[in-house]
Nucleic acid binder design. Structure first.
Lengths: 215, 215
DNA sequence: CCTTGTGAAATAGTTCACAGCA
DNA sequence: TGCTGTGAACTATTTCACAAGG
């Protein structure tokens, strides 16, 4: 119902969802915001507030029914269906992504994989044959996938992203080290280990004195 | 000098730094906050404010000298030195990380790689031999690396992280799908494609009507 | 002109603290 | 008692808007 839910809230939901799935697998039936917070390093108040945007899922004095809340979050996040994913770029990283076992159980099906290198066109990952990237635009029209994963070199990435967007893809997971340009209605998430490392070295520096004194 | 710089600001700095490096490589000598913002999808005011936490690097009426600003950011982020990195987990993902060419030019040296699988102990990535994960704790004492990259399965990750922390590592890049528990003085960055995808499916759902009407 | 650097204003997000219910 | 759900208070972050300088 509510249309103006902060984006930070949305991005925490998958965290809650994953923990709840684990709890459910462990046989836990009820959990409090306190316990959830402890496990995730988030304050209980924040978790309660986040969930309250979507409804009243808890029972006072008890906590949240794990099964019920898992189901609600699955609905909210749109994980009650499967999503069709295309992967572009089948180098070492792309191959690792294509063969990652974590997507399928969460409802993400990689339905096609593409590479610009003509020598890479051939059977690669178990059920999928690598297609020429030139076929991407046409395939998008025919196949209408929901999500694109971009694992091509930086200098090819914006072109691939443009093709995906023109082909009607509204969600892109970008592993290429560029600031992707997309229309506002297209979701992008960036995965960039170098930026992550550089964000940490800032803190390491300011902390160097401590570290050295332990030597 | 200033000690209370918002963390969001720090995490944008690497973005600026990378763009400035690119501009420098292209021969651009001066750039305005306007232009930087355009390229990164960030408001010019935000960029000016972010930079102002660290000093006055611009010239009114002109903009920022690319070379100067790049140099300042390199200092600020601690990229004016090399950092020693250990990688734990040499499966498909770990192998892709170990052979990624993007770390070295940014000052990150992978100095050792570890795996729990005894069969994996042997020469793997060009200059490095995979070591048994049992050797990690001892090696940390001797080698004192700065950063750990964790690419092991979820159920092994917290143990590895504990070992890294006990061994004096203060920055961890975690690819394992768990909420890592570390003391506050240890930096952690999470790389989790499934969480990223799940954050996007929420938006895809709320947008489904548009998409279907195009069919 | 043009663009920075920056207080002040506005917005966004988090935490508090307590009423209400099992 | 124990815990949720939630306005209100607080804190953080972004944006505005303009003086000042080249």
């Amino acid at each position: 119902m509510p249309l103006d839910i902060p984006n930070v809230v949305i991005d925490r939901l998958p965290l809650y969802y994953r923990l709840l799935c684990d709890l459910h697998a462990d046989g836990t039936a009820v959990v409090s915001s306190q316990e959830l917070g402890q496990a995730l390093g988030i304050t209980p108040a924040q978790i309660r507030k986040d969930l309250s945007y979507f409804g009243r899922f808890g029972k006072q004095g008890r906590g949240y029914a794990v099964r019920r809340l898992t189901e609600e979050l699955r609905q909210i996040l749109g994980l009650d269906r499967r999503w069709r994913v295309v992967l572009i770029g089948v180098g070492r990283l792309g191959t690792a992504i294509a063969s990652y076992r974590g997507f399928d159980p969460q409802g993400f099906d990689i339905v096609a994989i593409y590479d610009a290198n003509p020598e890479t066109a051939g059977v690669k990952v178990s059920p999928l044959t690598v297609r020429a990237v030139e076929a991407l635009a046409g395939d998008l029209e025919a196949q209408r996938p929901d999500i694109g994963i971009v694992a091509v070199p930086a200098d090819a990435a914006q072109d691939v992203i443009d093709t995906l967007v023109r082909g009607g893809v509204h969600a892109i997971l970008n592993y290429a080290p560029i600031a992707a340009h997309v229309p506002t209605e297209v979701q992008v998430r960036q995965i960039d280990p170098v930026l992550a490392l550089q964000g940490m070295t800032y803190h390491l520096r300011r902390h160097g004195a401590d570290e050295r004194s332990r030597a």
